[in-house]
Structures are given as C-alpha cells and as structure tokens.
C-alpha cells in the first residue's frame, strides 16, 4: 500500500511544482486571447470565454513586426559579435603565454564588469555612442550590449576551449595548419557544443535587455520588444491583452531556438572528447 502512495505523492508534488512555474505562462497565453472587456471583469479565469485575436490584430497594425525585426537584428548581432570575440579571447587566454598574472587579472576585470550594475556605465556609454553618432541605432545597441554579453561569453567559452587537448592542435600544427586554420578546423568544431550553449544563453540575455534599449533608443520605430512592451502600460490604462500578446509572441522565437539548439547541444556533448 505504502509503495503505491509514495510515487503518487511524488507525482502530486511534481504537478504542484510544475503548476507553480506554468501558471503565469498559462495566464499570459489565456489573457492574450481574452477580449478586453472580459479580463477587466472580476471573474478570474485562465481560459477566455470568447477567444479573440483582436490584440494580435492591433499589434500587427501598430508595428509589431518592425519591432520584432529590430529585436532580432540587435539580439542576433550582439550575440554573434560576442561569440566571435569571446571565442578568440578565451582561446588566447587559454593558449598564449601571457606575463604572469596578466591573464588572471584580465579575467578578474572581465568578471567585475559582468558583476557591475550596468547603470554605472550608462552615462559614459551614452557619451560614447553620441560621439560616434550611433545613438538611437541598432548597431549602437549591439555594441553596448557587449558590456553584458562579452564577459559572459569569455567566461563560458573558457572552459570549453580548455577541454580541447593541446596535442590535437600540435598534431594539426604538424599537419601544416596555421593558427586561423587550426581554429577553424580543429578548435571550433570541438567547441561546438559550448558555442551552442553560450549562443542560446547570450541570445536570451540580449533578447530581453531593457535598460540600455530604454536609454539609447528614442525613435519608436527603432524600439526593441522589451521597450515596445512598456508602451502598453500607460498612465490611464494598462493594455493587458496587447501586453500578453507581445509576451507570447516574443517568447516563441526563443522557445523554438532553444529547442532547436538543444538537440545540437546534446549531440555535441555525447561526442567523446578524446
């Protein structure tokens, strides 16, 4: 008897935990399809009584696709830039002989930048972007996002690059490769699972970034999605339907991307590094 109760209690517990995490998401999805009149009434319900697409239609007309495109450009751009330079930096840190303690102090500095509240550098960065004429542009945002993404990429990739045995590179050296070819043909493929993991985390980070977007973008048509979302909370009214609609639409690409990359991630990790 007790044997049966134990797994039952276990699964009940699991369901509770799952509900705890899923409830806000379900609520978001429900609200996105609920007509405006319905969700401001007092009845509390997850499922809309009269499902509607009105919020999505409104978003579409309001310029959602443009903001989505902005976000994709900025997030993907910032991620790729950080991956390229993070990979090169971590390779250099792992393989090159720097003067004693220089590489450690560099890594510590990078870590400090990562731990620092971003607002600290908001004003200097503003001046910098203004100086090079990149305020209010996607490219400018891609550059300032490196404050978040680059330290993260360097630290993440460091351990993956370290795992690549030196003897493989030496073998490649004897096979007649120079450094760029070695990176391309040997180190990069072997770090692929690490790059995939870092890619997805960095992408999510850049995708959801709000503070710098708020500070450095001023033209509404240049807004990214997190900034666009905030438009629907006004002094007079909070447009819950649109708000949840954006929430749903902006999390879908990340969800698919994570699902797609995850397969690659697992395949990469099962490849023995010997």
């Amino acid at each position: 008897m007790i044997r049966h109760i134990k797994p039952l209690a276990f699964y009940m517990g699991l369901v509770l935990v799952l509900l705890f995490f899923l409830l806000p998401i379900l609520w978001m999805i429900g609200t996105a399809f609920t007509p405006s009149g319905e969700y401001i009434s007092n009845s509390l319900s997850l499922l809309p009584e009269h499902p509607t697409m009105e919020h999505f239609r409104a978003l579409w007309k309001d310029g959602f696709p443009e903001r989505l495109a902005n976000t994709i450009v900025v997030a993907v751009g910032a991620t790729f830039l950080a991956l390229v330079f993070g990979f090169l930096a971590s390779y250099a840190l792992v393989r090159f002989d720097f003067p004693r303690y220089l590489d450690h102090s560099f890594l510590l500095l990078v870590l400090m930048i990562k731990m620092m509240p971003p607002i600290v550098v908001a004003i200097p960065l503003f001046q910098l972007l203004k100086g090079i004429g990149m305020l209010d542009s996607s490219l400018g945002l891609i550059l300032v996002y490196q404050v978040y993404t680059l330290p993260f990429c360097i630290w993440m990739l460091l351990s993956f690059v370290r795992e690549v045995p030196l003897s493989l590179e030496e073998a490649a050296c004897l096979d007649g490769t120079n450094l760029p070819k070695r990176l391309l043909y040997i180190v990069l493929p072997l770090c692929a699972p690490g790059l995939a993991a870092t890619f997805i985390f960095t992408l999510i980070m850049a995708w959801n970034e709000f503070l710098f977007a708020l500070l450095y973008l001023s033209t509404p048509s240049h807004f990214t999605l997190p900034l666009y979302v905030s438009n629907f909370i006004t002094e007079n009214e909070t447009y819950w339907g649109q708000l949840m609609g954006i929430g749903l639409l902006s999390s879908l690409p990340m969800l698919f991307m994570a699902g797609y990359v995850q397969r690659y991630l697992l395949r990469g990790f099962t490849m023995q590094m010997k």
Partner: peptide, 13 residues
C-alpha cells in the same frame, strides 16, 4: 616530419 603522439591526438570530429 610526422609524429605519433602518446595520446594518439586523433581529431575526434
């Protein structure tokens, strides 16, 4: 020259 390593150093991918 060609070298055979103790760890073989074959490219795993």
């Amino acid at each position: 020259i060609a070298m055979v390593f103790q760890s073989y150093a074959l490219y795993p991918h």
